[in-house]
Design a binder for these strands. Structure first.
Lengths: 238, 238
DNA sequence: TATCTTTGCGTAAAATTTACACAAATAACA
DNA sequence: TGTTATTTGTGTAAATTTTACGCAAAGATA
């Protein structure tokens, strides 16, 4: 541990200069097969009591901001994502009515069916990303930047697969890409390119479906993904 | 202004909970025509007195982290870059011997010839990015991530042009891309693609050069760049 | 004028992307 | 049992882009 840089007084922890408080906030993305979604929690205390907000909280002295984000997420939503991606710092002087608070923003990708909390008697709820309520603090701004970060990262990281179940069909994967990027792809070409890239592997499992021809099942191929990244870095693209 | 969230005591500013200090640090990239470079300053005080470090300093209560980064940069190096790109937060519990300090890291791109300070009797100096000294704090780690961020952003933002003089030759631009990305390109293809993309415009100015055939001069074409981005977002690339 | 070095530019082959068309699989239903 | 509706799987040809490579052009130097 570091030497202490404060003096404990009757009024609290005293420093030579005023200090901002540090928090972390998390944007939890999910996908219901059609819409990109976000997990929000309803605030139980002032300020913004009753408003929806991103899960998050104050940094402790014995943890990094990543550890803080994981902890708050576990405490408030019981979610333990594989990874949190840090995408921005929000520090406008008046962003928090309690005083000077800056927040480090992360996003996480989860399979909705793997989330325990958030559907029982909890105060957490999934919202379609295109019909969000007005959120507490500057959380609407944070969410906007989270979407951009996701859009940016999907090209370089195996982002989509963390939002889907272990087995998924090609149309499901395509719909997710389309929602994240805000575009539409040709079905045949999307499939061809995905398979050619080696990031997906066809599974033998029989698909259960309803109403029409069922799609073949695929899974994410970590090995193939690694190879894709290598090749990409040597290419002439710029 | 916010209401005060501290109590001023004889020992300093007192808070209910202990707080980490917040700093910003800046990685200033430059390009000398051959090597990618970084501007560092020599620390005049403990800790790490005499060591080289990134310019940066403590967040004040009346500024955002962006404003803090700009201010510190101006104070320590006289540089006023067009923009600072935030790329990471470093918050390991023991990263600063003075106590609990987290830092928000930015990078900036500057034309070396436009930098006033840093070459007179100042304590700032340019270093080739591949022969850096051992830096103060965790600044070597920060620099490593800055390089990755630059590498990532060069595809989506007009990064390279901020490092070159207003007029530049195609081989100069190519060398810069090659240094940032760590690859080599075919000369003819690089040129073709750059011109076709519309991000550069040929200038009429006569080139001054020595030793061999001089390259034509180009400049960055903001309008063409904007168009490129639009098209890109509608494409089928994923 | 010949030589050296680097830049500018063209071209053909290879690879990829794009735009469609059509067959196949399943459920629902007459 | 066939017929229809819907969605998925697959092939193919044209258009476009990428890649590899060669040669001429523009200075400087001797």
């Amino acid at each position: 541990m570091n030497k202490q840089d404060y003096i404990k007084t009757a009024e609290g922890y005293a420093y030579d200069y005023p200090r901002a408080a540090v928090t972390t906030d998390c944007v939890i993305f999910g996908f219901d097969g059609t819409q990109l979604q976000v997990l929000l929690i309803e605030r139980g205390v002032e300020p913004y009591k009753g408003h929806w907000a991103l899960p998050g909280g104050f940094l402790r002295m014995d943890e990094s901001v990543e550890e803080c984000a994981f902890r708050e997420l576990r405490e408030e939503t019981s979610i333990e994502p594989e990874m949190l991606e840090q995408f921005g710092v929000f520090s406008a002087v008046n962003r928090d009515p309690r005083g000077r608070v800056i927040t480090i923003a992360f996003y996480a990708l989860v399979r909705k069916e793997a989330v325990k909390g958030g559907d029982d008697a909890s105060d957490a709820r999934w919202f379609d990303i295109d019909s969000l309520p007005h959120l507490a603090f500057d959380h609407n701004d944070i969410l906007k930047e989270a979407r951009q970060a996701l859009k940016r990262d999907i090209h370089h990281q195996p982002v989509a697969f963390k939002l889907l179940a272990e087995h998924f069909t090609m149309p499901q994967l395509q719909r997710l890409y389309e929602r994240i990027l805000g575009v539409t792809f040709d079905r045949g070409n999307f499939r061809k390119k995905m398979i050619a890239s080696g990031v997906v592997r066809e599974e033998q499992t029989k698909p259960v479906y309803t109403g029409h021809r069922p799609g073949k099942l695929f899974s994410f191929n970590l090995f193939g993904y690694g190879k894709m990244k290598e090749d990409g870095s040597n290419s002439q693209e710029f």
